[in-house]
Amino acid sequence: CCQVSKKTGNQIVSHLLLVEPDKIFAMADPTTSDTDDKVLTTLCDLADRELVVLISWAKHIPGFSTLSLGDQMGLLQSAWMEVLILGVVFRSLPYDEGLVYADDLIMEREQCRTVGLLDLYCTLLQLIAKYRKLQLDKEEFVTLKAMALANSDSMNIENIEAIQNLQDILHEALQEYEKNRHLEDPHRGGKLLMTLPLLRQTANKAVQCFRRIMAEGRVTMHKLFLEMLEAKV
């Protein structure tokens, strides 16, 4: 951890790098043919498994586990899609027009159109373009993910002060990292924070898309994914 800290110049950022989860693969069922519904089923199954990892990751954010169980639930229920979207966005940065849901599930415009996710695809490309222009690095990515969770604006928070404390700690970590690693642009931290409205907008759109798919009953969704989609109403 100390070696990583020397590199990032901030202990929280180094810790977030260390607790970053391993890659998850989509692992589409090889025994069935590739229909639109199969692609959506694979995507929903991937999201369900990512959610399990995300909940476990959240517990490793410094201070998160000291919040009340109700507040932990409130933050996760509000911000889970923003955290998942940030992951897709970061993985997609090296690709021109593909969304890297997983290394084995890269979706391009035409496929997104045929499964009914073109609108979401376009919004995601806009968000990816913003981060590509900034050349978002991994340290900033892990810090922004934690900030998205802490800044979820949940309506069901019991201890607002504790959440504010968590936000302040993450904000300071980002500022310190930028001061140490991106001296060339004193506005970089602000620029990163200014991407958060589009992230929320994109996450809301994604939730709407998957709620529509859920209502259509076209694909089987696992219980945790359903539970989190329903919590976002």
């Binding site: 490793h60 945790l224 989190m228």
Partner: peptide, 20 residues
């Protein structure tokens, strides 16, 4: 909490929380 029982259960699973 009953409505969100999987999230509730996963959060209660033992891990190593990190203090501030």
């Amino acid at each position: 909490k009953e409505k969100h029982k999987i999230l509730h259960r996963l959060l209660q699973d033992s891990t190593s929380p990190v203090d501030l």
